[in-house]
């Protein structure tokens, strides 16, 4: 199961997952003892058929889904044990990008970006939109980075899919995260926009020197952008190695069958 191709020099791993189990219904585990280690940089693609637990795995990392058992160490701190304020502090260090963008539709682009800073300010300031000037400057800088400089006061529901996903990425980066998760960020986008979004994710991971973990369906995109690929089948890791090591035999064992490969 594990051909750990993690050859980067790791002083301390950014994220370590140990014996992670998750069962939504008792006795029917979706994740069956995941063991993974992620170094300080690089883009990792998690591939696998629908329903193999990719999304659950990602959501366990920031505890949007409660793990049944196991350990998740973010820079040495076990997230599974945290609660309340400490959990929220840990979530702040993990940025997340969603398949359907999950922007708050009726808020402006700027407000959506600032939601990335909500963990740092109190309820009254949040209500009155009183964010520190540094945050606002940071938000404008990020809008420049993702190419949406003039969209600050547009409502999120007036944007196209690609633009929304750029806002989604900028929102995650607003948190100044130590880890970036992306749950099928390109599945709702056309091929050209998908490539642009993947480029942006890789670029931002490098620029901020943080690891990026991306769930995806598109094997070609994974080969093209990922440094490392993890293949999941039935709640277990079926492949873990460099993107170049991913051949048809491996794909067959991850997805099963072969007719689709031609």
């Amino acid at each position: 199961m594990n051909t750990a191709a993690d050859t980067q020099p790791t002083t301390q791993a950014a994220l370590v997952i140990r014996k992670l189990f998750k069962a939504y219904v008792a006795g029917q585990p979706v994740l069956k003892g995941i063991d993974l280690t992620f170094g300080g940089t690089g883009l990792t693609a998690i591939i696998g058929a629908s329903g193999t637990g990719k999304s659950t795995l990602l959501r366990c990392i920031n505890r949007l889904v409660e793990p049944t058992s196991g350990e998740i160490l973010l820079e040495g701190e076990d997230i599974v044990r945290l609660g309340g304020e400490q959990l929220r502090a840990a979530r702040r260090r993990i940025g997340m990008v969603f398949q359907e963008y999950n922007l708050v539709e009726r808020l402006t682009v700027m407000e959506n970006l600032l939601t990335g800073r909500l963990g740092t300010i109190g309820p009254l300031d949040a209500w009155l939109r009183r964010f520190p000037p540094a945050d606002i400057e940071h938000a404008f800088a990020l809008l420049d980075t993702v190419g949406l400089a003039n969209f600050a006061n547009q409502r999120a529901d007036s944007l196209s899919g690609g633009q929304r996903q750029r806002v989604g990425i900028a929102r995650a980066l607003m948190q100044e995260p130590r880890l970036l998760l992306a749950d099928e960020p390109t599945s709702s986008l056309d091929p050209k926009t998908s490539v642009e979004i993947m480029e942006l994710l890789r670029e931002q991971g490098r620029a901020n020197n943080i690891p990026v973990i991306v769930n995806m369906h598109d094997v070609e995109l994974a080969r093209r952008f990922a440094d490392r690929v993890i293949g999941m089948r039935n709640g277990e890791v079926a492949f873990d190695g460099a993107a170049t090591a991913l051949d048809d035999g491996m794909l067959r064992s991850i997805y099963g069958g072969e007719g689709w490969l031609q």
Binding site: N62, R88, R92, M96, L103, V104, T115, L118, R171
Partner: peptide, 11 residues
Amino acid sequence: QVEAVRASGAS
């Protein structure tokens, strides 16, 4: 949309 805001560590 709620999930995304929760993921940012908001109270």
